[in-house]
């Protein structure tokens, strides 16, 4: 299955590129959504976790993707922003879903560390792959930008992994429940949050047995005009991830340069690039 993690940038208006302020970008969800659908179809995405899902984005997805994908969202506790996931209806069934907030104890009701910008949330969905009847968990989150709270938030997410897996095994009487976590972690591989996130999960970029991305190309370059691929931003600003539990095989890990004019599905789908992992459940 192909998994996408994509921060879709919450704005819904005209803007400009970071590298060339004179270059206009139509950053409305109506325009960028059309390109997003091309990417989803072209890359044959099975499941995606999106961040910065403002209401206009959620409406667009509901109106324009429902023939292919089911959608589940979890709103922030204090903001209209949300984490949204979509899954290919033909291949998967969503058995259950819920959310918890990124403060210790992982409460199911809105809660916030006073220092965090927002009441950040993590969405979890129990999915069944229809062809194999295998159950697995899909989590999507977006950590805060405030340095002091990110480790605590990462800890809450990671500590929920095993209890969630156990809960699914008990509830559905299955022997195994692998887990996929996607999101914009606002944390680079050398940040203190990264070892926390990789305590129980593997970073697909490193676990890939096939093609993979280098460790320097930014996943979040901002809208960038490039003459050629040589202009991709390579400053190691890697903050968008797909993490998986031990049993999942990572066949490939790729990035679509959606934040550039060179994106094969049309210029500037977001200010982030789209990261894609091809996975196989055990």
């Amino acid at each position: 299955m192909k998994i996408l993690s994509f921060n879709l940038y919450g704005i819904n208006r005209q803007t400009v590129t970071r590298s060339k302020p004179e270059r206009p970008v139509d950053a409305t969800s109506a325009h960028r959504g059309t390109l997003l659908r091309k990417l989803l179809v072209g890359e044959k995405i099975d499941i995606a976790g999106f961040q910065e899902m403002q209401p206009h984005w959620r409406n667009w997805i509901r109106d324009n993707l429902s023939d292919l994908y089911g959608t589940i969202s979890a709103e922030f506790g204090d903001h209209k922003d949300a984490n949204t996931m979509i899954y290919r209806k033909e291949c998967f069934e969503a058995l259950d879903f819920g959310s918890f907030y990124l403060v210790p104890g992982a409460p199911g009701i809105p809660a916030k560390n006073p220092e965090s910008h927002f009441a950040r949330v993590c969405l979890w969905v129990v999915l069944k792959e229809l062809a194999t009847e295998k159950h697995f968990l899909f989590l999507a989150t977006h950590l805060d930008t405030v340095e002091s709270v990110k480790s605590e938030q990462a800890r809450v997410v990671v500590d929920s992994v095993e209890p969630l897996r156990e809960a699914v095994k008990t509830k559905y009487r299955v022997d195994d429940c692998q887990l996929i976590l996607v999101g914009d972690m606002n944390s680079q591989p050398d940040a203190e949050q990264y070892p926390i996130l990789t305590e129980r999960l593997r970073d697909c970029r490193l676990a890939s047995t096939g093609h993979t991305e280098d460790g320097v190309t930014s996943t979040s370059p901002g809208f960038t005009y490039c003459e050629s691929e040589a202009d991709y931003v390579r400053n190691g600003h890697i903050i968008d991830y797909v993490f998986v539990t031990e049993g999942i095989e990572v066949k490939e890990y790729t990035m679509i340069h959606a934040a550039t004019n060179l994106c094969p599905y049309g210029e500037y789908i977001s200010d982030h690039n789209a990261v894609i992992a091809e996975l196989e459940l055990p």
Binding site: A74, E75, S99, F100, G108, A167, K171
Partner: peptide
């Protein structure tokens, strides 16, 4: 908490 929320999703989940 997670098991309970699994059974009764809160209003914040759409």
């Amino acid at each position: 908490t997670l098991l309970l929320s699994a059974c009764t999703p809160e209003g914040n989940v759409t």
